[in-house]
Amino acid sequence: MKKSIIQGVISIGLFFGMWFSLKEIDWVGIFKVEQLTDKTEQKLGDLFWEGIKKTEQENKNTDVTHAIDSIVNHICLSNNIDIEKLNVHVIMKDEINAFALPNGHLVIYSGLILNADNQDELAGVICHEIAHIELNHVMKKLTKEIGLSVLISITTGNGGTEVIKQTLKTLSSSAFDRSLEKEADLKAVDYLVNANINPTNFANFLYKISETDSNIESYITWVSTHPESKERAKYIIEQSKGKLTHFKSILSNDTWNKLKEELNDFDYQE
């Protein structure tokens, strides 16, 4: 009995001793795990953005880009987020949609801006998407749904355009896991509060959109793919309770109205 106990303890000790000793070595650095994923993310982001640029029209009007950049800059500065990591693009499309791509690309459709009653609603959606980027949800979703091997094969040019197209569709028109969506919502509330923006407007936006006429539901990609908008609005309100201080708008009313005017008057090119 004594013999087997001693030998058992030695065996277990040997196992854990070896594990803990090997743990001291920087395997992640040796196998370049992070470098591989960083490079893959960078290449994927650029590939997807190139794909969008080919089919959609980007609005580069300075009134539009300055207004959106002001909102994004203010959010990032208030939350110590590295602004250099983000690439914000406004795409001219009627759909109410915004989504994040790998490597910090943040795509906002003009339909979303035009359907926002005020800038705080837009800021809420932007914060939600920045949260997805900051929490690394984009790569997690891609790795889970497509697999790291396919992602790497896309970046090495073996993926084919159809795979890129399908992957892009997954990113632009399907939601993340419920838990990831909630995490991004709650993080967005923190970002909004830190940026002195009223999170209630973000919740109102979700309420408003969820009660929109079902005939135009197909245009509301951002909400129809994000389940349980009302429930989300509720926990956003709950999360912002007690955090409400004094809020101020980032853009002047003139700049906000000018932004909408520019989007309405956009000259579409064939």
Binding site: M18, W19, S21, L22, K23, E24, I25, W27, T143, K144
Partner: peptide, 17 residues
Amino acid sequence: IFTEENITNSYIAYMLT
């Protein structure tokens, strides 16, 4: 593979052991 867990030194050391 399926959750938010990342590849760490601890994981690689465990797998090698």
